[in-house]
Design a protein around this nucleic acid. Structure first.
Lengths: 153, 153
DNA sequence: CTTAAAAATGTATAAATTTGCATCCGAAAT
DNA sequence: ATTTCGGATGCAAATTTATACATTTTTAAG
């Protein structure tokens, strides 16, 4: 039994069940032959981006983070790692970041003054990037590569 | 001081700051004259649907449930001067403002309820204005002229 | 195969959050 | 003004989660 198997099991259990505590999850794992301690579970949940929210009926429930992407390990001083995902939609690029990081990343993009990028709008953990007319998605992605590659170790 | 005030303060603080524990939030509340105990905070957070997630850097952060954003406080006085530029792209209008002014300007636009404008999204220094289908760029620009001309001395 | 370094895990403990219970406070009714 | 009722709150205990530390396991390099 390896860690990947355990993480997969945990994600599956959390996705398919209403689980209110780590102890409950542990019990659920017992039958499967893939067990661990509560401490390990705590660490696993963080790695999976699974946090405890509310079940809407007065109780708690573990939930997969809405962002869906799990952030890579942080590299201090780097903003490149603050991009956790990108999605194209209607000619616009949605950039995901960890909570609170959107502004910092957007500012970095804005400062380059790249012509291809008409502008950005940053929320808390999402940036909307609007390309100029007649600029391809590929060109924009290349811009981002250029902007952030020096930050990537 | 009543509960509604406290809840509003808590939501505002959580929305605008990276808060990792209830104790931290308590300390932040101290200066405001609206205080309570950590136990009450725990109950308040549940009521507001605010739960603890991850900040993407190895720490924790309290988060509002499903990305509900809240309009910022309107800035009294002239907002016309707060528009530093506009750019059309992909049928959308990007409005630039000085840092921090986007919300105030966007609110002013929204309040007019102009039919031609489907909606706006404000970041910190940029507003994305989405025109309704089949509305010309010129019509939108005229709307803005109308909205802001009274502010222009 | 052996060794060194890194990663993973469990144990024990600390830290953080939740909750039971008693009390307090304010609104409505008498 | 007094009583009554229900929500709100603080306190302290219980519960739940996170982490420091030691140990084991895995990985990588000779």
């Amino acid at each position: 039994m390896n860690k990947a198997t355990r993480l997969a099991l945990i994600e599956k259990l959390v996705r398919e069940n209403v689980i209110g505590s780590q102890e409950d999850l542990l019990k659920m794992m017992e039958g499967t032959g893939t067990k661990c301690t509560q401490a390990t579970l705590s660490r696993d949940l963080r790695q999976l981006g699974i946090s405890r929210g509310f079940d809407g009926r007065g109780g708690y429930r573990y939930l997969l983070s809405s962002g869906r992407e799990q952030a890579a390990e942080a590299v201090p001083g780097s903003t490149a790692i603050a991009i956790t995902g990108i999605t194209w939609a209607r000619g616009l690029l949605l950039i995901s970041t960890p909570p609170g990081f959107a502004s910092a990343v957007a500012i970095k993009i804005d400062r380059t003054g790249r012509y291809e990028i008409a502008g950005t709008v940053a929320g808390d953990d999402t940036i909307l990037l609007i390309p100029r007319d007649n600029i391809s998605n590929e060109a924009i992605e290349e811009c981002l590569m250029t902007i952030f590659q020096t930050d990537i170790k």
